[in-house]
Design a protein around this nucleic acid. Sequence first.
DNA 1: ATGTCACTCGCGGAGTGA
Length: 255
Amino acid sequence: MNIATWNVNSLSVRLPQVLDWLAANPTDVLALQELKLTDDKFPVAAFKEAGYQAHWFGQKTYNGVALISRTEGVDLVKNIPGFEDEMSRVIAATYGDLRVIGAYFPNGQAPDSDKFAYKMRWLDALRDWVKDEMTRHPNLVLMGDYNITFDELDMWDPVGLKDTIHCTVEEREKLQALTDLGLTDSFRLFEQPEKSYSWWDYREFGFRRNRGLRIDHILITPALKDRATACVIDRAPRKNERPSDHAPVVLTLGD
DNA sequence: ATGTCACTCGCGGAGTGA
């Protein structure tokens, strides 16, 4: 089965691309981030017509997340329980014995900003909740736009971008707190092309020059690690006429 | 190059966020 995550940077704009991509890449569960639309504007009919179910958690202008799936999910959770948040960033559901959490992590703006402090608090709350979820769900996927790189391999310019947003020690410590729960970065389980990134700035011909970051991740529990057979970043949609700045990341699981 | 894109408010284009 295929599990995927994609920050679409406005689902209204990118819906045709998402439907095209699903038609070409049959996917069991696709997590979307940055819907940038309210719940009443979610294109549920278009997904239904394409043979997909959906759960969504929208917000005006900013954020917004969804899970698109072949079968309907149960035990739906929106945002991090117990963590007060005005922003729609997390959606979780269970498909068979698979627990899926889709998340749009805070950007953080700059290391000395209020938004960075919020990012740190949010990451602490996420860790505590995911730890709890893992006690109930041995087969768990935590995927989305993390807005954090793991290391220099995930950066097009490790020297110039050292300690900048998405690449600070503080953010990486919080990311490690997630992997310390026993979660694995599925992308690095497999041999990957050099300079693999999942996001490229729209400016400065970032994609064409492959000046990107790998900030979209699929983390998995040990039971799923045993089933993982591939994880790839699909750069094809980034070559579309009006692309998202992110590319989808796809994990393949065997039985 | 402060370089692009998507959104809001509200009807032109500045302001915000990424």
